[in-house]
Design a protein around this nucleic acid. Sequence first.
RNA 1: GCGCAGAUGGCGGAGUGGUCAAUCGCAUCUGACUGUAAAUCAGACGCCUUCGGGCUACGUAGGUUCAAAUCCUACUCUGCGCACCA
Length: 405
Amino acid sequence: MKISEELAWRGFVQQTTLKDLTYLDTHKVTFYHGFDASAPSQTVGNLAAMMIDLIFIKHGHKAIILAGGATSLIGDPGGKDVERPMQTVKDIDVNVKNAKKQITMIYGKRPFKLVNNLDWTKKINLIDFLRDTGKYFNVGELIKRDYIANRIGENGNGISFTEFSYTLLQGYDYLHLYDKYNCTLQIGGSDQWANCLSGVDLIRKKRNVESHVITLPLIINKATGKKFGKSEAGAVWLDEKTTSVFDFYQFWLNTDDDSSKDYVKIFTEIDKAEYDALIAMADMDKSKRLVQKNLAYGVTSLVHGKKAADEAKAQAEKMFSGDFSHIPDNQIFTVGAEYISQNEVKLIEFVTDKKIVESKGKFRELLQSKGLSIDGNVLESTTFTKTKSEHIFQVGKKRFYKLKF
RNA sequence: GCGCAGAUGGCGGAGUGGUCAAUCGCAUCUGACUGUAAAUCAGACGCCUUCGGGCUACGUAGGUUCAAAUCCUACUCUGCGCACCA
């Protein structure tokens, strides 16, 4: 399959400056893709963008992956209603390191070049920058951009010059990479369209060269309509310290039928023949959730490795068939003696102290709606009598915890 | 700088002296039905509670009042208009 066909089949291209994607079938280009480093970890939202890169690399295009050390210090105003809190240089530095680690994990053994825009941006002299780069940006055009217009229009929360300038830096990155590596294509999320074009304009004006942009649809949480990502609730992170491998696996497994068919094309490296076979199989018995299982396993092994994926899969199968011998570590708790008197366990105290349930009020609420159980029996009070050295505590239908004594 | 308008819970958005922990919609959580799905239906949705109630909240700080999200003053932030600058 040619790259143009593959991109179309997977539904990867949202917008592009290329008149015809088949150009990529015959011309090998150097492209760059930037990652934000304002959060300690990348999210599943970023993952889609990584997958498109993998396709480009597979088809022989050269990849430059950029960790946004500089741009994260400024803050991208896109998609945000309010100014972000500024982060310290130190925090960003840690984030960049994490981002590099995750990128390396996912891009694996494929060839790619990793850069940090802070390396060239920090050397820029202010006067030079204003004269050589700032001169090419028209403020009238900038303030027409939706995300800026929203901030400064009626009901807007305003925007500082710092965030306003973000797009200049991103444009400068593209120019720099063009000069140094002959990079002529930028890949980004759809929210990056305007920022990418800043670079295209800058390169055209300064070097009189045509460069291009491809943006892909962002993964939108269908329920909220918001993009997955930083400082929004419900983000799923790639770092297992923030989102455990088990939770990560579960996240994909819980995808609804329609979305899972799209996601499996986007987030796994399944080819068309395999895909068609999978869908045919899955449609024969929907209750088997074959697509979701494939998706969950595929993505988890890509991000966390095959071994971790096997483990998460085994755990999931056991737990949901009533075998609790393989509960993930972060869901095992040892109950201290202070919570027990005469074998009566003060469950409400323990569980709220450990933040398994967020508050006592919430606990009582769950109790009333029969949402809590011990070893499969609905819990009736805030305490229970222990009869073994281990009990399984369940919240709702999907959250299981092992309590050890 | 002057004037006008606004700031309410995760979000949108009511409320303009007591009946307001605050109508409603969205999101979220739980239950039922299912397939660890979607849709639908039901309930919950600030914190604590001996379930009587207590505490903290409507931009921030004061004030008026028996009583304030609601009135007054100052401040902060945002938008709009005018002026200044040029």
